[in-house]
Nucleic acid binder design. Sequence first.
DNA 1: ACAAAAGTGTTCGGGTTACACCCATGG
DNA 2: CCATGGGTGTAACCCGAACACTTTTGT
Lengths: 226, 226
Amino acid sequence: MVQQNIKVAVDAVVFGYKEKTLKVLLIKRKVAPFIDSWALPGGLVLEDESLEEAVERELKEETNVKVDYLEQLYSFGKPKRDPRNRVISVAYFCLVKPERHHIKADTDAKDVAWFDMQDLPELAFDHEHIIEAATKRLQSKLTYEPIGFDLLANKFLFSDLEKLYTTILQKPIDRRNFRKKILSFKILEELEEKVSEGRGRPANLFKFNKKQYFKLQEEGFLFDIK
Amino acid sequence: MVQQNIKVAVDAVVFGYKEKTLKVLLIKRKVAPFIDSWALPGGLVLEDESLEEAVERELKEETNVKVDYLEQLYSFGKPKRDPRNRVISVAYFCLVKPERHHIKADTDAKDVAWFDMQDLPELAFDHEHIIEAATKRLQSKLTYEPIGFDLLANKFLFSDLEKLYTTILQKPIDRRNFRKKILSFKILEELEEKVSEGRGRPANLFKFNKKQYFKLQEEGFLFDIK
DNA sequence: ACAAAAGTGTTCGGGTTACACCCATGG
DNA sequence: CCATGGGTGTAACCCGAACACTTTTGT
């Protein structure tokens, strides 16, 4: 048997929703190759940690972020994707609530920043490709799982939720039908608090009731927004 | 940086549909660990091949099978999943048409066999877990992509298709509604040939028109069987 | 009083569901 | 002529789509 010398890395596509736009978290690389390029946070997996632990560790080390949602996206393994050694990267799909948007370039990165998805810089490796896959995952998941709530603050306005859907899916939504549909799921709590956004009628705050969602899910309920 | 010594493998969950039951392709291991256990076909990735190439090569070497459909399933990377070294396995999801069911234990396996999904043996590593994930993928894909046709012969009876759906999804289907729905998609060609299965009225043969499906897909058509 | 955003109901049409009888063949 | 599996139509219902005006507040 030929001795195998392939390295295993993880990379994280971390989405955040801020100022009514979708953002992705990038770091500025401190080491070759692609030194000074923007790239996804990530790095080699250690001997004794799971893949998920590796992602969480790298995110902590490089960006100081702790994500609210994390799932495996896809593994990228073309022989030449890293110009030096062969590296297989297991990419993860992550979501962060605004409360946790505070980032900090830590020991392992020169800089960290949220980039608007409409305005990404040149990226290292095949990271552009990975972000593309993550975006598709985000768009499709948004329609059949309540992951939008992992991008919003705990208390949010209905109009925030609606704007998030139109922004990410890039198509208009009928406000009345949308509200009717979501409310019919009975997974939101309407709070007493109201918020006035400067002008216009003050709006009600809502909260996602995750426990209730899990309960309904057990009973066969399927979240589905077309 | 600590030197990393993780190996990268691929494993294939190959489904076949035979004798009106769903089967999975397994090999009997020739080497430790788990010598003589049944396991998924697979093995270490070579330095200069892509992950997909690795799967196809291993399938050829171990079982002599060439699959009709292949996509990445998930990467399994818990530290202790292989008792000896750390091995990350990128699992693939594969479908084979009956014409290609002829298998042959080749150089790298002691034996190869199709196992009924209802009657699996004890499996090596975490392969039972991998098969479980593949089964879920199969069930969900069956409802929103026309992958059932990659499990049937090129020419098939409507009742075969129906039986395949009821078998895999494990729930009854209304024959009339199912036929109406599928035919409404206009992705099947009804052939002139009829087949008499011993008793009963002879049935029409159908063929899946893949080209037509791709064309409709471009136009925004979504295959969907609930 | 005006601008801005929030909140709300009804109608229509298409698609999904439920449902049962006749047909063609072999034994 | 009987058993077996193949093939077919219609009516009820539900859900999604389309659509516009009123309410509440700040300026």
